[in-house]
Every structure is written in structure tokens, then in C-alpha cells.
Computed example of a mutant assay.
Amino acid sequence: EKQGVLVRARLEVMRERFPIIGDVRGLGAMLAIELVRNRATREPAPELASRLAKHASERGLILLTAGIYGNVIRILAPLTASPELMDEGMTILEQSIADLG
């Protein structure tokens, strides 16, 4: 539960910073971000999800794409992950989103 609260807080900050994040959702430590071309229309952006997964992978963070449009990034870290490791993963995620432009 604690892990989920910390990750969701980071994702919500990213949502405010990056317009390509249309939604943050999930339960507990199982969370997801939905990538969109435009927040107003909520048009799915599967190409951004693919690019994000590739960028993050190059930095050592494995992300899964999901959703019927392929525009969702699922986040489910091991419950035994340390706070430091979680912070490192979230930082890689944030940097990778920033690189998408």
C-alpha cells in the first residue's frame, strides 16, 4: 500500500507536467498511465507508449504497454523493491517521458 501511494504521487506530478499523460489509474501498487495525443480529446497515443518503453529500456527500466489501443504503460514493481530502487525507476520513467518531447 505504501509503495502504491508513493508511486501514484510521483505519477500525478508527472501528469501535471506532461500533457501526454491523460490519466493515472490503478489500485495499490498496480498502477498505469494512459498516453494521449491530446488531453481534451483523449485520443490514444500508442506510438508514444512504444517509444517510452524503448527509451526506458535503454536506461534499464522495463515497462509494459497495455490497453486495447496499446497506449497504456503498466507499473507493477516487486513489493520487495526498496524506496531507493523505486525512486530510481520513477526518475528513469520521468526522464524518458521528458525525452519524448
Rank of each mutant, 00 (worst) to 15 (best):
D99L: 14
I73K: 06
S57L: 10
E16D: 12
L31Q: 06
R74L: 10
E12P: 01
S82W: 05
A29Y: 08
A32W: 03
I73C: 10
T65P: 02
P44R: 12
L93R: 05
L31H: 01
V13C: 06
R51S: 14
G22W: 14
R59N: 11
E88A: 15
I73V: 15
T65L: 04
M14G: 06
Q3F: 04
K54R: 15
F18Y: 15
I20T: 10
D87S: 15
E84T: 14
H55S: 12
L27N: 14
A9F: 01
R42E: 09
A81W: 12
D87A: 15
L76F: 13
E43S: 14
N38Q: 03
L31D: 02
M14N: 06
V13N: 03
L61V: 13
I33T: 03
S96C: 04
L35R: 07
A40F: 12
I21M: 06
N71G: 07
G67F: 05
L85K: 15
I62K: 05
E58Q: 13
G70R: 00
G26S: 03
S82E: 11
A9L: 08
R17Q: 14
T41C: 11
K54I: 00
A49G: 08
E43G: 03
G101I: 04
T41G: 10
I92R: 07
F18G: 00
G67E: 04
A32Q: 10
A98E: 11
I92W: 03
M30G: 02
M30R: 07
A9G: 05
E47W: 06
K54L: 12
S82L: 09
N38T: 04
L52Y: 04
G101C: 02
E88T: 11
I20R: 14
R51N: 10
I73P: 02
G60C: 07
G70T: 05
E43Q: 14
E58K: 11
R25P: 03
P83T: 09
Q3P: 00
M30L: 15
G101Q: 07
I21L: 07
R59I: 05
E34Q: 12
H55F: 15
A53H: 04
